[in-house]
Every structure is written in C-alpha cells, then in structure tokens.
C-alpha cells in the first residue's frame, strides 16, 4: 500500500513538474511582457511630459480657461495626460502578456481588449478635447454676451458650453462603439431641441437686440429714437 501511495505521489509530482515546465515559458513570457510594458509606459510618460512641456500645454490650457491656475494645488493637465499615456501602455502590455499564456479563453479576451484599447483612449481624448473646448467657448460666449448687454449672459454661456460637451460626448461614445445608433438619435434629438429652443428664445425674446446687432454688422444706421443707437453714434472710441 505504501508503495502504491509513493508511486501515485511521484507520478503526481512528475505531472506537476511537467505541467509547470510546460507553462513556465508562457509565464516568463508574460512577466517579460509586463516588464517591457512597464518600461515602455515609463518612457511614454516621460515623452508625453516632455512634449507637453515643449507645447506649454499647462500654460495654454490655463490661458484658455480649461485648467485652473497653479495656486489651486490641483494636478496640472500635463500630469494627467502623462498618467493616461502611462496606464494605457501598461494596460496594453498587460493584455498582451495575458495572451502569452496558453489559455485560449484568456488569450482571446486579452486580444479583444488590446484591440479595443485604442478606441477607448481616442474616446477619452475626444471627450477631454470637448470639455476643454466647452470651457473656452463658455468664456468667449460669456464675454460676448456681457459686451452685448445681455442680462442672461451666464445662462447663454452655459448653454453654449453644454452644447459643445454634448457634441463631444456623442463623438466619444461613437468612437468607443457604445450604442452608436441610440447615441446618434439621442444626440440629434437633444441638440435639435436645444437649437430650436435657443432660436425661439432669440426670435421671441431678443428680436430687437439681434436686429440691432445685425444692423450694426452690416452698417445700417440705427433708427431715430433708438437709445442704444443714439449712444453708439455719440461714443467714438477711436
């Protein structure tokens, strides 16, 4: 009985050792992928940071109103971008590493994730650009509306910002391949609705203001008794 037990044990051990020997290269290959990915991710982070510095990304984003000044203590945008590139490369390396294991299910899943990763990164970039553009547009519209004397300048500016963000969100979801048809229809409905509401608001509520603005734009003289027109005629800034 003891002999039988010993034989089974030895055979099992041999089987484990053989299995380990079979799988060990794959594990080593996976670890090698991980190490390589970590090195590449570090290099990518460094390169992105340098590129951001050369492009003065933080300064430009602060200038456009997208990022807050340094004194707020928040991480600068360049660090976020560099971090994103680091984790994207690391994730790609990890998925590739998993595919080195001789497990068909894991390999198939990891390859699909690797293929999907660029779309996710692109979607994040589109969304980030949309958020940045939204802030910039908001500020520009706010200044323009205040200079036009619109009491509801803040609301107009916020509306413009959300339109841009909505457009970016639709683009990002489309890029990510998430429910593209639903997103397109929903976006069309919301965007069209907002545009219609804005058009009605301007048409009904600010008709005179728009007429005056267009008149000024095309060199039309303001009508007699028009207070703003009279004021403009009097004030010569140059």
């Amino acid at each position: 009985m003891w002999e039988e037990t010993r034989r089974i044990f030895v055979e099992s051990m041999e089987e484990v050792v053989r299995a380990t020997a079979r799988i060990l290269p794959s594990i080593l290959a996976m670890l090698l992928f991980f190490v390589l990915a970590a090195v590449l991710a570090t290099v990518a982070r460094w390169a992105v940071r340098r590129a951001c510095e050369r492009l003065s990304l933080d300064e430009r984003l602060r200038e456009w109103g997208v990022a807050t000044p340094d004194r707020d203590g928040r991480a600068p945008p360049s660090r976020l971008v560099a971090g994103l590139s680091f984790w994207a490369v690391l994730a790609a390396g990890a998925f590739l590493g998993l595919s080195a294991l001789n497990a068909p299910a894991v390999a198939s899943l990891s390859m699909r994730l690797v293929e999907y990763l660029p779309r996710v990164v692109l979607a994040i970039v589109v969304m980030g650009a949309g958020l940045a553009a939204g802030r910039f547009v908001e500020r520009g519209v706010l200044i323009g509306a205040v200079n036009m004397g619109l009491e509801s300048a803040r609301m107009v500016a916020l509306g413009a910002r959300w339109l841009v963000i909505l457009l970016a969100a639709a683009g990002a979801l489309e890029q990510a391949g998430l429910g593209s048809a639903v997103v397109t229809v929903a976006f069309g409905a919301v965007f069209g609705g907002i545009s219609l509401a804005f058009g009605l608001a301007v048409g009904l509520g600010a008709r005179d203001l728009v007429a005056r603005s267009l008149g000024r734009r095309f060199g039309e003289k303001p009508p007699a008794g028009d207070a703003e027109g009279t004021e403009r005629n009097r004030l010569r800034h140059l």
Binding site: E63, G65, R139, V146
Partner: peptide, 13 residues
C-alpha cells in the same frame, strides 16, 4: 498670458 489674449482684451470692455 493669464487669459487668452483676445478674450482678455474683450473682457476689459
């Protein structure tokens, strides 16, 4: 360049 230059000047109005 604290603020984008065209926006800065227009905000002075």
């Amino acid at each position: 360049r604290t603020v984008e230059r065209q926006q800065l000047l227009r905000s002075m109005t």
